[in-house]
Structure formats: C-alpha cells, structure tokens
C-alpha cells in the first residue's frame, strides 16, 4: 500500500450507529495509516508496559494468550494459532505493532487476529455494538509492553 490513507474509525461507528444502544460507545480517535503502519500514538500519552502486560493476559480484554505464545510463564495456557511473540519487540517497530493491534486486516486481510480498535463487524452481540475491544490507551499500553519483548 503506497499512499497514505486517512481512516476515520468513526465511519464504522456511523454504520452501526443506528442500532447502537451504548452511551459508552465513545468516539474513536482518527488515525493515519502510512504503508501499513500507524506512526502516531492514538492518545499522545506514553503507554504503560506493566498495564499492557495485564491487558494481554486478561480474557475479556486482549486475551492474546488465546492465540499467542508469550514470555509469561506464570500463565498456564498459551494458544498456538498465532505467531510466537517472544522477541517481537526487536522484530517489529512501534508503528507496525500499533497497526497490528488496531486493525491487522490492513496487513493481512485473511488473518484470524481480531481488530482491537475497530467497530462495524457483522452481527456483533447487541451489548458490544459500536464498541471496540480495547480503548485507545489500552492499545498504547500493549504496544509499550510488546516493545519490551526484545
């Protein structure tokens, strides 16, 4: 993908908007995709790696361990459908990791990995309509945590 593309995530919101019940369905921040990366922080606030690690484990938040092996031996079960994330912080940069979390389908449209900061999927359970899996700061916290996996 050569040209930069302005993604208004609020577009997805507008689609689901007619049936959205949630007052909690917060506006999504705009972000700019450059060559399959998102160079700018979604919040402008630095991510908290310690919080990021908790979110990655949390079954109702990141639940990354469902699909990925990660250097978190205190957690018993790690899934195997995704890539081993040991050392991912030296393989990939922040901008790529942010894109991976926000909407990995931009990188690989056939991927099994969910888009953690996106709305408008098909037949979303009513109470999640118009909501993202993670909020913008949680995405930044995970990016910060992944960057520590050298």
């Amino acid at each position: 993908m050569k040209h930069a593309k302005l993604m208004t995530a609020a577009f997805g919101l507008a689609l689901a908007g007619t049936i959205a019940t949630g007052a909690q369905a917060a506006e999504l921040v705009n972000y700019k995709i450059v060559d399959e990366t998102i160079p700018q922080s979604l919040t402008g606030k630095p991510g908290d790696a310690a919080k990021g690690k908790k979110i990655v484990i949390h079954r109702k938040k990141g639940n990354c361990l469902a699909c990925h092996v990660m250097p978190i031996p205190e957690q018993q079960f790690h899934g195997l459908t995704g890539t081993d994330l040991n050392g991912v912080g030296s393989r990939l940069d922040e901008a790529t990791l942010r894109m991976r979390l926000v909407d990995p389908k931009v990188i690989n449209d056939g991927t099994m990995m969910p888009s953690f900061y996106k709305t408008g999927q098909h037949r979303v359970l009513k109470k999640f309509i118009g909501k993202t899996i993670l909020n913008a700061q949680e995405v930044e916290d995970i990016v910060a945590y992944l960057m520590t996996l050298k």
Binding site: M112, Q121, V124, I133
Partner: peptide
C-alpha cells in the same frame, strides 16, 4: 462468514486450526 466483535468465521477455528490450542 466472519462475525462478531472478534470477527471470526467457523472456518478460522475449525478448518484452519483443528488440533491447535486456543488458550486452554
């Protein structure tokens, strides 16, 4: 067809990954 907030089709789990662990 992909569906739900996690955007997965039956095939993602049962055709592409049988035998694989999905967490526990």
């Amino acid at each position: 067809q992909r569906r739900g907030q996690l955007d997965l089709a039956c095939s993602n789990c049962h055709e592409d990954n049988p035998g694989n662990m999905i967490r526990a």
